[in-house]
Design a protein around this nucleic acid. Structure first.
Lengths: 207, 207
DNA sequence: GTCTATATAATGATAGAC
DNA sequence: GTCTATCATTATATAGAC
């Protein structure tokens, strides 16, 4: 693991901004705070990135590159390489969570790309017989990804209720196991909620 | 539906703050902006709520009361009364999403209460035979709730990829249906991911 | 590349009239 | 209850020396 002062000042600033933006949000973070964390003057931050928004964009692009590098090779979007990358880098996880909520362009791209990969992955599985068929494969992929990313945004809440620290390995293992259980055996033993919902949706559409 | 100017100034300010806080975050919202939306002077906002943080607390409590009123009577925490309430009030949804991410006390309470209700609901279902048994009912309830609330936080992303407007009825119906499908029939046809994960988790713990 | 010093605008909050 | 006027602080951003 490389230490902090191995980085150039520019990279150190970006790293500090990523952490701050993730923790307090972009609006809740001042250039001064980032500069202090990075051990430089506020002016240097703006010298390198032009403006606060420029700094935000640089963080966006950095995270986007990270996500892309950590998933294109391995099997797409299951709980594999991507989850591992996110699990090892808490600041990135937090930043991405906030970016998804704030709706930055890069976050939208990340989400769309993960959905794309997931949809292909599920289609492969369906062809090979280990994924159940569905009428609306797009909606399934989107919903699956939103479930996959949910702990990323709700991590603090999940962590508190599951005992350990947020994103502590033991904690996330409990959640992931419970999730996989529901995804393989299902949660309900019969169709009652599915049929109930379908009829409600029909009524809704028909009125 | 009651119109905006039926409300007292105090309520109008709170309503405006809820919307702004939800859209731009607390840090990204100025007292002046809230005052402008509510059609009052900035000073009046602080007169009624003491400080910006007081205003935030008032919003928290209001949302907490809303959630409690919209779920205690009906069947707890399935896609029923709660989902309906959230579906009809976009500003509340957005506010709650941000509050969950920011980790306000009220948001933590909301999350914990929903998990509590859900766990009881699932236990009932298990006793009556329409919910599958599990080893870790707590983790399952937490994970289920995080999935239930995922579209709330990732709504913008989900909406964009599913075509329609965010939280448009037709759009959310597609996602909800896909989710229920996975929860009743399961997503995978065999144990491959569950066993793979279990063995990985064992290795992780053993080292 | 990095700093100090500073301009300029916006922010949360207060005082006091009505 | 509601306003106008204002203060003190903090914000982003720039200028220019080193």
């Amino acid at each position: 693991m490389r230490s902090v002062d191995d980085l150039t000042a520019r990279a150190r600033i970006r790293e500090a901004a990523l952490a701050r933006f993730g923790a307090d949000g972009v609006a809740g973070t001042s250039v001064r705070a980032v500069a202090a964390d990075a051990g430089v003057s506020p002016a240097l931050v703006l010298h390198h990135f032009g403006s606060k928004d420029g700094l935000r964009q640089a963080c966006d692009e950095h995270v986007l590159a990270l996500i892309r590098s950590g998933g294109e090779d391995a099997e797409p979007s299951d709980l594999g390489a991507l989850a591992e990358m996110l699990d090892s880098a808490t600041p990135v996880r937090r930043y991405l969570g906030r970016a998804l909520l704030d709706g930055s362009p890069a976050a939208a791209t990340v989400f769309a790309e993960i959905v794309e990969r997931t949809e292909r992955w599920l289609a492969d599985g369906q062809a090979q017989g280990w994924v159940r068929p569905t009428e609306d494969s797009r909606a399934r992929a989107v919903t699956y990804v939103s479930w996959l990313l949910a702990p990323l945004v709700l991590g603090e809440q999940v962590g508190r209720l599951l005992g350990g620290d947020v994103a502590e390995t033991a904690t996330s293992v409990r959640g992931a196991r419970a999730g996989l259980e529901m995804l393989t055996h299902g949660l309900f033993t019969d169709d009652r909620w599915l049929t109930a919902f379908t009829s409600v949706a029909r009524t809704e559409r028909g009125r």
